[in-house]
Every structure is written in structure tokens, then in C-alpha cells.
């Protein structure tokens, strides 16, 4: 709840109104980027215009409304932050995007992608165990656990049991045909 209330372009509560931050600017930029990708997709699809028949505004109507609102809104957010930054004479960094904080989440995303790619060639069960073994150790380390002899046996055992338990639940319980 450290910064539950935040000001946007329109503003809500100004309880935490402080100097503008880079992340506020980046939030607007993300929406502009989304709008650009979406509008490119809509522009380059020649068939969508054909869907307008009679009074039906067609299949691209709602997507265009959404894209426009997101794009203009994102832009407004960016401009608002820049104006505030000019007034305040500073654009603060929030300390959210630092390597010390980001490396483990990034590593998890990468290992999940590798896990997904490995499922077909290795099979779900084997891939799950290969994924679970290092990550049970990471969670153990992050919880302040020590790697004593006992844990060198216990952690791999836990990884196999968790992966195997979930596999069995889905495979035998609800007949999911895993690769």
C-alpha cells in the first residue's frame, strides 16, 4: 500500500501528489505503444472495413474507440508529467527498475518460457521437474533458508513431489492429456 493513491492525468486524490516520476511518464508511453500496435493492426487489415453493413458500425468500431482512447489518454499522461516536471524542475526516479529487484523476476519469466518450450520435446513431467529443482532452491534461499546437508536431499524431493502431485492431479484427476 506504499503508493496506492497516485495521480493520473485527470487526477484522483492528490494525497500523494509529489514531484512527477519517470514511471508516470513511462505508464503513458506504454499505453501509447499499445495504441500504436493496435492501430497498425487495424490499419493493415483491409477486410475489417468490409464488415460495415447497414447500421452496424462494423467489427473495427469498438477496437478503434479503445485504441483512440488509450492512445490519446497515454499521450495526455505523458504531457501532464512533462508539464509537472517543468514546473517542479525535477523528474524523479522511483527506484522500481533496479537490477537488484528485477533480476530474479526476469529470470523466472525466462525460465518459464524455456519450461514451456521444453514441454513438447521432454514431456510435461520431466520439464516440470527440471523447472522445479532450481526454483525450489531459489524460494528456499529467498526465505532465508540455509543449504545444509539435509536440504540437499529434502529440496529435490519436495520439487519432485510438488511437480508429480500436480501432474497426477490433472492427468488422473481430470484426464488432461499432457505432452
Amino acid at each position: 500500500m506504499s503508493r496506492e493513491i497516485n495521480e493520473g492525468a485527470a487526477g484522483t486524490e492528490s494525497v500523494l501528489a509529489g514531484p512527477p516520476r519517470v514511471v508516470d511518464f513511462a505508464a503513458g508511453a506504454v499505453f501509447v505503444l499499445i495504441a500504436l500496435i493496435a492501430s497498425w493492426s487495424l490499419w493493415t487489415d483491409p477486410y475489417l472495413e468490409l464488415g460495415k453493413v447497414g447500421d452496424d458500425p462494423g467489427p473495427s468500431f469498438i477496437p478503434w474507440i479503445g485504441t483512440t482512447v488509450i492512445g490519446l489518454g497515454g499521450l495526455a499522461q505523458m504531457i501532464w508529467v512533462l508539464i509537472k516536471a517543468k514546473k517542479a524542475g525535477v523528474l524523479k526516479t522511483s527506484g522500481e527498475f533496479v537490477v537488484a529487484k528485477l533480476w530474479l523476476p526476469a529470470l523466472l519469466v525466462v525460465s518459464l518460457i524455456i519450461y514451456q518450450l521444453a514441454m513438447k520435446p521432454l514431456g510435461f513431467f520431466t520439464a516440470s521437474i527440471i523447472f522445479a529443482l532450481p526454483w525450489v532452491a531459489v524460494f528456499h534461499w529467498r526465505s532465508g533458508g540455509a543449504f545444509t546437508k539435509r536440504y540437499l536431499i529434502q529440496l529435490p524431493l519436495e520439487a519432485v513431489l510438488i511437480a508429480g502431485g500436480i501432474y497426477s492431479l490433472f492427468y488422473y484427476g481430470i484426464n488432461v492429456p499432457f505432452p
Partner: peptide
């Protein structure tokens, strides 16, 4: 959080 960003996020969900 920010109502303005929440509306944009809602529009993104709509997309």
C-alpha cells in the same frame, strides 16, 4: 491507484 490509468487499463482489457 490512479483512476485515469485504471480507465486506460480497462480500455486495454476491452481491446
Amino acid at each position: 491507484g490512479s483512476t485515469f490509468l485504471a480507465i486506460l487499463a480497462g480500455m486495454f482489457g476491452l481491446l
